[in-house]
Nucleic acid binder design. Structure first.
Lengths: 191, 191, 191, 191
DNA sequence: CTTTAATCGAGACGGTACGTCGGGTCTTTCT
DNA sequence: AGAAAGACCCGACGTACCGTCTCGATTAAAG
């Protein structure tokens, strides 16, 4: 009987998916330090021993879950008309995410986890860099087309704009609303 | 008739101080969810029972420690010459803090704690609002004196600048260096 | 339909036995009021939580241990020749027990425990009644055969003889020696 | 310079008395292992520090209390007519004591304490020997006068009678009643 | 009387045990 | 052969006291 081409037991795939989802939910609900294998198992109705069979320890599980969280390709708003509109769209998208997406829900846990675990830190920084890149590109394009002053540093500008949105989510009681995006861009980019 | 002496046992003050310091250190080292009364007691060489005599539970201790953390008035650089210089000083100060201060060490824990505990949340937001106020005032003054365009919203501008510094600390591997402050202000405020 | 296998996890039986033994040892060493779950756990190298899983609290554990202590059927010397010899054997056996058996080691703890806890009291009295019954029967038999005066009350005679042995163990510095048994019977039963 | 008449601060005498009484009450209520300085202090309304000032530790306090307990000379029924009547009186007295006196209330505690603490043991045995002596003397007198067989060993007979009374108090649910004293003497001494 | 000195009540402190909860490892049983 | 169940050890929780200790506040004795 030939061994299949790396066939994986469907039960495993099923368990894997359920556990990862539950892990993200627990991460959002209890944070990095509050996450518990037992909590995850209870949430997804799987036995603890199953989790321990599939991941060596808590750290590996969390890392795997974060990976899964970020690999879900965010519905990138593609092919906008002008750089200016594209920037507005991207920031609005980010502001929206900071108010309701799974990533935002896990953000405090991610930040805390990044502080304690090198692997989490690497993932966290990596995915932020990737996400920021689109904004940097749009801003650079705007500089290119003359929509922005040429002395604008695209990287710093992107950090400022994204930073404002993140800051409002993490450091204040009021996340940035959609209608505050335009004033923000007006103030920061001089529009 | 003068108010009574209201003497407080010096042993209490001593214990209180030691425990709060240790709590902040543990918060920085293990995070909000990882903090443990046992850990705090061990770190400062105080008996667990002493901690429970002075605070009803973990939550109260953490809240108190955060309060103590913020009430140490940071050496505000006061009375600068021009608004412009004052802004630069404030931001440089913030960038510096994000690289080395106790507050920055505890920041991930604070963010995580704010997400889980309403009291921590209130404190966290309150102190951030207070700290940001100085920057807002300086920017408003710059608008007043014409150093900044009149269409600049001081609150949003402050959020963008502070947000950039915080973003670099929390979301990337490279906190903002001092020599990046000027380029940041150049880009965001058009200087 | 036969009763199910009713298998009990061998680990449980093992822990149970170890804990009960240690409890008796602690009872002998520290007494009823000095017994400590921590002490028992330490003595038998079992985790405290294991004890709490098997018994609801200290009282239940002690009661169970006392039960176990008494259920080990003492090697009753059975089927002696004459009632007279049987009485002597029984008393010698008791005197011996009062000098060295586990029961004697725990006796002060049992008496103290009986004074504080109704359950212990019930067990203590029950097992004493049971143990005394053999002596009462032998004395009654001796009365029957004319070996003892007919006005001897077997119950009181048994109490006097057993009482003497117990008294010497609990109230004096010198437990009754084997060679004192014959004189005791001579004096009390007129032999 | 002659030392004063060893005056002792009346506050001390007062505290001392109150504490010793409370100690005996606690011994009766909680036993030797359950006795607690705090319990004693609470019971007699004295501060813990006062107790610790007057006695070095728990052991000394207990020993002192036991001493006080036994030094209250029991109202010895003196000068009876015949040895036989005197014996009956003494045993009735003991039976009575085993049902209601402070000594009987503390007896389990004393037995337990004697097992753990050499000092308590010494006191316990000493006072029992003293109390038993009267009975031994009365029995010896009865032998002398021919009221008892000459082969009766007064010491063993006294132990048997006293032992019966003590046994019924400590090992059974029914302490010896007054009307059981005569049958007991009838059976044991052949009356 | 007032001063002086001791006793006293109060309670902070480092500990230890309580009984509870839950975490991660590993064994046993079931399907 | 898995997965589910759950026993095991460990450690933190918050509570209750214990015995040590340091305090001011009282109260007795001496001047």
């Amino acid at each position: 009987m030939p061994t299949g081409p790396d066939r994986v037991d469907p039960r495993i795939t099923r368990s894997r998916r359920a556990v990862l989802d539950a892990t993200l939910a627990e991460l959002a609900a209890r944070g990095y330090g509050g996450l518990t294998i037992d909590g995850v198992a209870t949430r997804c109705g799987v036995a603890r021993s199953t989790i321990y069979r599939l991941w060596p320890d808590r750290a590996a599980l969390v890392a795997d879950a974060i990976d899964a969280l970020n690999e879900q390709p965010p519905p990138l708003p593609a092919g906008d008309e002008t750089p200016r509109e594209r920037i507005a769209t991207l920031v609005r998208h980010l502001a929206d995410a900071m108010r309701s997406s799974p990533v935002a829900a896990c953000l405090p846990a991610l930040i805390d986890g990044a502080e304690r675990d090198p692997t989490v830190r690497r993932l966290h920084h990596h995915y932020n860099d990737r996400r920021r890149a689109a904004l940097v590109a749009a801003i650079a394009a705007a500089v290119e087309t003359g929509d922005l002053r040429s002395d604008v540093d695209p990287e710093l500008a992107a950090v400022a704009v994204a930073g404002a949105v993140v800051y409002r989510r993490l450091m204040t009681a009021r996340p940035l609303r959609d209608d505050e995006v335009e004033p923000l861009l007006g103030t920061v980019l001089g529009w």
